[in-house]
Every structure is written in C-alpha cells, then in structure tokens.
C-alpha cells in the first residue's frame, strides 16, 4: 500500500482541518461582539416603543416566556420597571396567520392594559401591499396606540372588513386580521396574568437573545 494512494484523502483532511480552524478562530473572535450587537439591537427595538426614561431596570434581561393559545411561539414578556415599580410591559409575539408566513410583533402595554404602541419586527408580507404594516411605510400600525381590551368594545376588536373598528389595509385583509388578532391575544394574555406578570422570576440566564424567525426555519 503506497502512500500515494492516500494522498488525496490526506489533502482533503488537511483542507477540512484548515477550514475548521479558521471558523473556530473566527467564532471565538466574533461571538461576544455578535451577542453584544444583538443585545444593542434588541434594546433599540424596545426603546423605540418605550422611551428610556420609562424604565431604569435591565429591560433586555428582565423577561419570562409563556405559551399563548393562537400564537406561534411562546410570548416573551419584557418588564419595564421604574424605581422598582411596574412601569410597562413589552410583549414579543409571533403570529403564523400572516399572508406569507410568520409575523413578529412588539406590543408595549401600560400597567393598566392600554397599548402604548405596536411595531412589526419581522414579516414576509407582499412588498407594496402587506408591507405597509411597517412603520416606515405607513402609519397604519399606529391605530392600535391607546387601544385596550374594552376600547374599542370586544365585538369591535376586528378589522372593519369584519365589522370591527380597525382600518383594513387595502388588498391586505389577511395581514390586517392576523395583526389585529395577535394584538388582541397579547392584551388578553397580559390581562390574565395579572400581578403574576410583575412578580414572576426572570428566566434570563446569561446572555440569551431571541433568535429571528429566519434563523428558526
């Protein structure tokens, strides 16, 4: 058995080892930075809804998750506190009823159950139609500001196409309904938790950032 026969295999192993070394080294080099950047971005998304003066706790790490019927992933409840007192909650929730896949929302809620604001974090809705749910494309999402479970009345908590109070984006009925329902489900989950929302232990262990939808699938 000559060494020559083994040469290709050895060369391939060498290339594989080289690739593994490069990637392992780069991973060590970038891991902390990537985690830091993700945290910065998570905080930026939260503070867009909730001004920094509304909380003085570590908002990004003060959360727990709980499954909610009708929503895709467990809802993550972020708790904003000011001087140790509850200030507001931000819900990170995902609905699978979008027109083309999951839609991820952030819903900021006052302690009394009034919505501060809603933002779409991720979606794959049709460009030009469904993507008007993004704040940079239209003001549509702002119509939820100030809403709560009894304002509008429970039977009006739906898009106007279905006899409700909320504007329907033209040619994006499914998208509209998905978001309206998801926001209502979020409010209901907030409501049913009651005081437990503020007293429950934080689940955060170390630096753990919620993966994006694209990385899930």
């Amino acid at each position: 058995m000559s060494l020559k026969r083994w040469k290709p295999a050895i060369a391939l192993i060498a290339v594989g080892l080289l690739a593994a070394t490069i990637l392992a080294g780069l991973d060590r080099l970038t891991r902390d930075r990537i985690a830091l950047e993700q945290e910065r971005r998570a905080l930026a998304a939260l503070t867009e809804l909730l001004p920094a003066e509304r909380f003085d706790n570590e908002l990004v790490t003060d959360w727990f998750e709980q499954p909610v019927t009708g929503l895709e992933r467990p809802v993550r409840f972020y708790r904003a506190r000011l001087d140790g007192q509850p200030s507001a909650a931000v819900l990170d929730l995902v609905t699978s009823r979008g027109y083309s896949g999951d839609i991820r929302l952030l819903v900021a809620i006052e302690t009394d159950g009034t919505i501060i604001g809603v933002r779409v974090l991720e979606h794959r809705e049709t460009p030009g139609l469904g993507d008007r749910i993004e704040i940079r494309r239209s003001d549509w999402i702002r119509q939820f500001d100030g809403a709560s479970l009894d304002h509008p009345a429970p039977d009006a908590w739906a898009p106007d196409r279905r006899g409700g109070q909320f504007d329907t984006l033209s040619n994006a009925t499914i998208t509209t309904a998905a978001i309206t329902d998801a926001v209502r489900l979020g409010l209901e989950a907030f409501d049913s938790l009651g005081d437990a929302l503020w007293t429950r232990e934080s689940e955060m262990q170390g630096l753990e950032i919620r993966p994006d939808l694209s990385q899930n699938s």
């Binding site: 290709p8 295999a9 060369a11 391939l12 290339v15 594989g16 690739a19 490069i22 990637l23 780069l26 991973d27 080099l29 970038t30 930075r33 990537i34 950047e37 993700q38 910065r40 971005r41």
Partner: peptide, 27 residues
Amino acid sequence: EIRIPAFVLIIATTVTVVDLSLQAWWH
C-alpha cells in the same frame, strides 16, 4: 478525486467567514 468536496468546503468556509464578520462588525 477530491476537487469538488474541497471546493465545497472552501466556498462554505468563505461564506461563513463573510456571514460572521458582517454580524460582528457591520451588524
């Protein structure tokens, strides 16, 4: 004999390097 698997390895490595670098420095 090993050209194609080696190329695939090299390409996959390069793409991962780009991906990780972007995430870290151009988030």
